[in-house]
């Protein structure tokens, strides 16, 4: 027994030290520094000390908090749309498709997401824009008299966000739906249950863990996305990550940018925490 514990302690430090350094130097300390900077004045002012001015500025300027709440609301909307589309897709793949096509369909839904987000969004821009594919056919066959700009508006942006995040809803739901015993559905059917009853009382309760994981991951992805809102959204539909980018890179006001970053992190943590509490799950289970 003695020798075994000695072996373990040797191995322990070999694994512990690098992991500790990684988490400290690249996760913990950077976030502490971000928090510190959000409570400091810009360096060129040469006024050290604690200040709330970065946060006060956020609440004073409507464009900032408008963007903030719009981003939150749109992220929730996108998550709901993704859930509504994702559930039947996952159901089809696990329960309806024949066993042979199943593996094929699973690979098929994965392929687009192995391709960079930029390329996927770029694909949509060449379809939707004024000189794009849809307008080409619509004007060629005389359905529309002149091309319509379908890009750079909120609807296009929401569609793009749904597109880029839907896989992360479908995959966790497939995972849990797989473990749902078909005979439960058959039994309910034999007892005369209607489809919506089966969905409400059997399928959805069983899939809840997957649904919650999917919702959380999709929500985080959408909230933190930059490319899709930037390339598909309009001039007036700025995303909060773009505000952070502007503060950091355009205005070089890192303190304000840090405050924005923390507000985003804070809001997302609160929303995730509420979702976890409501569903009675832990973060550990969700990220699996």
């Amino acid at each position: 027994m003695m020798t075994k514990s000695k072996r373990l302690s040797w191995g322990f430090f070999v694994f512990f030290i690098p992991v500790f350094l990684w988490l400290m130097l690249l996760i913990v300390l950077p976030h502490i520094e971000l928090l510190r900077m959000s409570f400091a004045r810009p360096a060129y002012l040469k006024q050290p000390g604690f200040t709330l001015s970065n946060y006060i500025e956020f609440f004073k300027e409507p464009i900032y908090w408008n963007t903030f709440f719009r981003t939150a609301m749109y992220s929730i909307t996108v998550t709901m749309i993704v859930l509504i589309i994702g559930l039947p897709v996952a159901f089809y793949i696990t329960k309806v498709a024949s066993f042979k096509t199943r593996g094929f369909l699973t690979i098929l839904i994965l392929i687009p997401f192995w391709v960079s987000e930029l390329i996927r969004v770029y694909g949509w821009t060449i379809i939707l824009r004024e000189s794009g594919i849809i307008n080409h056919f619509m004007t060629k066959y005389g359905i529309w008299k002149q091309p319509i700009e379908m890009l750079y508006n909120d609807a296009a942006m929401i569609m793009g966000l749904v597109y880029t995040s839907i896989l992360f809803m479908v995959v966790p739901i497939i995972g849990v739906m797989d473990s749902l015993d078909n005979s439960l559905i058959e039994a309910a059917y034999d007892l005369g249950a209607k489809k919506n009853v089966i969905w409400r009382q059997i399928i959805i309760p069983h899939c809840m863990p997957g649904i919650i994981s999917g919702c959380i991951i999709v929500f985080m992805m959408v909230l933190g996305s930059y490319l899709t809102p930037n390339l598909m959204g309009g001039k007036n539909s700025m995303w909060f990550t773009e505000q952070i980018y502007n503060q950091f890179i355009l205005y070089r006001n890192w303190n304000m940018g840090s405050a924005f970053g923390f507000l985003l992190l804070f809001m997302s943590s609160i929303i995730i925490w509420v979702a976890l509490k409501l569903s009675g799950q832990s973060l550990k289970e969700v990220v699996k």
Binding site: P30, L34, G224, G257, S258, L264
Partner: peptide
Amino acid sequence: PGVILGISILSF
């Protein structure tokens, strides 16, 4: 979010 990770590492 990746953006937050980026700015925190940059500031640190």
